[in-house]
Amino acid sequence: MDVNQVLDAKGLACPMPIVRTKKAMDILESGQVLEVQATDKGALADLTAWSAAAGHTLLEHKEEADVLTFYIQKG
């Protein structure tokens, strides 16, 4: 997958993963992809819901060794 930017939000507690994700997305162009790495378990439900509400597409997410990784395409 073509990733345009990677955001390391590991170790951050809610709401910071989403706050940082939003800031990063604001700078990207439509169609570009942001990879977000987070360890806060709540990020899964929240990033999924936020992406949909903000008009972005959550392309994929995975969980490996307690790290959640998301690929979000800017809408």
């Binding site: 809610c14 709401p15 989403i18 706050v19 939003k22 929240d46 819901a49 936020w50 509400a53």
Partner: peptide, 9 residues
């Protein structure tokens, strides 16, 4: 009132 925090950023 339920509004997710991420809608209030």
């Amino acid at each position: 009132l339920n509004i997710p925090y991420f809608d209030l950023l």
